[in-house]
Design a protein around this nucleic acid. Structure first.
Lengths: 210, 210
DNA sequence: CCTATTTTGTGAAATGAGTAACAAAAAACT
DNA sequence: AGTTTTTTGTTACTCATTTCACAAAATAGG
């Protein structure tokens, strides 16, 4: 099994580039087209494909259509992926309104919050009490959750999600969550990302001026 | 010079854990305390510290206070870091309201947008026309920018930021931005992160059930 | 004061990801 | 049909990061 996150991320990028290339009229592509598009080496592209059993034609490259299809299969994009969000704060709100997910076949089905003032059962994306998560998730067989609650509540919300049968989580709370090994937890930590930029800017400046 | 991003990210995590440990009354820590806290091996902790010339006492561990101080110096947290945000859409809005930055010594000084309906010069964090970015950034000598504009505008906003003297960028637009080598660009791509969770959940399921 | 124990700091080994190189296949050209 | 060119797919190599392992230092205990 492939455990390399950046490899999967590259597959997503190939896929996105391929849609653009197809829109431009491309019918076949070569590894170096894709390499240029996402900023890696051609050998990396071929390696990635070979890892997933994707093959092209020597001297003929890859058919755009079938390549897109294969990548979508690998990435689980044959059907719309339904996710839930916990926490209708700043981030939760932004996610609900964000248009980027829809065009990637990701659908936010519901948001759960603890604050009854936020409930909105009839909205396009309903906002429901946390207690209803279990029924909702089980009925709809949802496997993916997003955690956008305050730090202090994050672990208990994760535990709740796992009890509902959620198998993968995107976590925005800036702390390490404990989960069994078979659960996927990706963290998006905005402070850390910014702190990182700041560090490299600071040291860059230092090394330049002496 | 250290170019390893994950190493810097770990330093940030150590620092965050140390604050928590200090709040619990810890005066000294050992590498395995910190290792547990952030989920790495003790040898990793010691290696990271040794890379930055941080040393402790054999059998005595590390003093929490001095360790925090050293990490803060390395991470450039001795003074408040001022940043600007471009784009007052969903994400820009969430960032402006987000409390997490303040307690990390990161201050959003202003937001710039193209839409005059959004301008709000007298707000706590002013929302200004994009054209005013140059003066603002130069006067305040700001080095860090956040890009939260639609995909199509992202590259031009980046170019504008670079013309203002910005040296590091956190980019939320889901595409690859072109920048000179001495500019730091960190990307946060929410679709990709979710797609990644989805992939691993799907394959996990497959490998388990056969 | 000497011995046992703990914990660091570092150099060596292992792992893993990315890059390079090249044989083999396919197409194009003559 | 044969030769040349192009491009894949895979194997071997390189490099970076992580993990291991152990000597040296410091403390604690008898």
């Amino acid at each position: 099994m492939i455990t390399n996150k950046s490899c999967i991320i590259r597959l997503s990028r190939y896929k996105n580039s391929l849609y653009r290339l197809r829109a431009l009229g491309f019918v076949k592509v070569f590894s170096d087209n894709l390499a240029d598009a996402i900023g890696v080496l051609p050998s990396q592209v071929r390696k990635d494909f070979s890892l997933f059993g994707i093959s092209g034609n020597k001297r003929g490259g890859y058919q755009v259509d079938t390549l897109i299809e294969k990548l979508n299969t690998i990435l689980g994009k044959e059907q719309v992926q339904e996710v839930i969000v916990a926490g209708l704060g700043n981030i939760g709100n932004a996610l609900m309104k964000y248009k980027g997910f829809e065009k990637e076949g990701i659908k936010i089905c519901a948001c759960f919050d603890i604050d009854s003032a936020k409930y909105h059962r009839d909205a396009a994306i309903p906002v429901l009490p946390l207690e209803e998560m279990k029924d909702f998730v089980r009925n709809k067989r949802i496997k993916i959750g997003v955690i956008a609650v305050p730090d202090i509540a994050a672990q208990s919300v994760l535990d709740m999600m796992l009890a509902c049968g959620i198998k993968g989580v995107l976590n925005f709370a800036p702390l390490r969550l404990r989960a069994p090994d078979d659960i996927v937890v990706n963290n998006v930590n905005l402070e850390l990302e910014l702190e990182n930029v700041i560090y490299f800017v600071n040291t860059q400046g230092k090394t330049k001026s002496g």
